[in-house]
């Protein structure tokens, strides 16, 4: 299995709902707590597993504002794992999820250095590395109803811009959608082969204009012929 997320840059509205739901779920989950420094003061900052940035693509008037959510992409060639000296970081063989064992991490930051996607953040208070768990404690939880065995971010997204599934299965929803819409890799040149794919914004639909077959002047009361329409 190769579990991951398919993220739709066409429909994401940048609401930060996924980032907040992620923090909420995971701060009490396998990787929590996710600490915050200066929470009520100047320059508040904290550990998040998912962040949304916004870009402007192209110059006005041909410009598009694109919201860009990013969490761990659960790369095939996860150098963040290779470099980890303690073995705290690992990629699970069974499903490809990349995790950090909170009990073994020494907080050296090296894995964060090795991650091109900014998916790892050191928790200053806890002294250990935090990253997206793909909500491993939801997706396998038999106590949850089946439709809720999905990452918190996926469940919360109001525009369904995040899909979760197995990219190894060519018939999974994520594989099919990714094929259909040309799912893309971020920084492919680095060779990390991320599992998570990004769907590009769609071309604007071209709508035909109503073909006008007469130049009749609708404004003329005189030429108006009322149809027989029963109330």
């Amino acid at each position: 299995m190769k579990l991951g997320l398919l993220i739709d840059l066409d429909t994401c509205v940048g609401c930060h709902g996924c980032a907040t739901a992620c923090k909420q779920w995971n701060t009490s989950g396998t990787i929590g707590p996710l600490s915050d420094s200066n929470p009520y003061g100047k320059d508040p900052d904290g550990a998040w597993l998912n962040r949304i940035r916004t870009y402007e693509v192209g110059d006005a008037p041909d410009s598009k504002t694109v919201h860009f959510p990013m969490s761990c992409l659960h790369c095939e060639n996860a150098d963040c794992v290779t470099v980890c000296p303690t073995g705290a970081s690992y990629k699970r063989e069974e499903d490809g999820i990349v995790l950090v064992d909170q009990d073994k991490c020494m907080g050296c930051n090296l894995c964060a250095w090795a991650c091109p996607y900014g998916a790892r953040e050191l928790d200053h208070d806890q002294g250990v590395m935090k990253k997206c768990t793909l909500c491993v404690d939801r997706i396998y939880d038999q106590n949850l109803p089946e439709e809720e065995r999905q990452p918190a971010c996926v469940l919360t997204c109001p525009t369904s811009s995040r899909l979760f599934g197995d990219f190894d299965d060519p018939e999974s929803e994520v594989s099919i959608k990714s094929r259909q819409r040309g799912g893309r890799d971020l920084m492919p040149e680095l060779g990390y082969e991320p599992t998570n794919k990004y769907l590009p914004p769609r071309e604007k639909a071209t709508v035909e204009m109503f073909a006008l077959d007469s130049t009749e002047d609708g404004f003329s009361l005189k030429s108006w012929v009322n149809k027989m329409i029963a109330r």
Binding site: T30, P33, Y40, T86, D125
Partner: peptide
């Protein structure tokens, strides 16, 4: 006064551990 740091959680985390054997032998 407001705290300098908060680590909000409803319960202490239930960590997933990687086995030492895996650490020493994988890769």
């Amino acid at each position: 006064s407001t705290p300098d740091s908060v680590s909000y959680a409803t319960h202490s985390n239930v960590n997933l551990n990687r086995s030492n054997r895996d650490i020493l032998t994988r890769g």
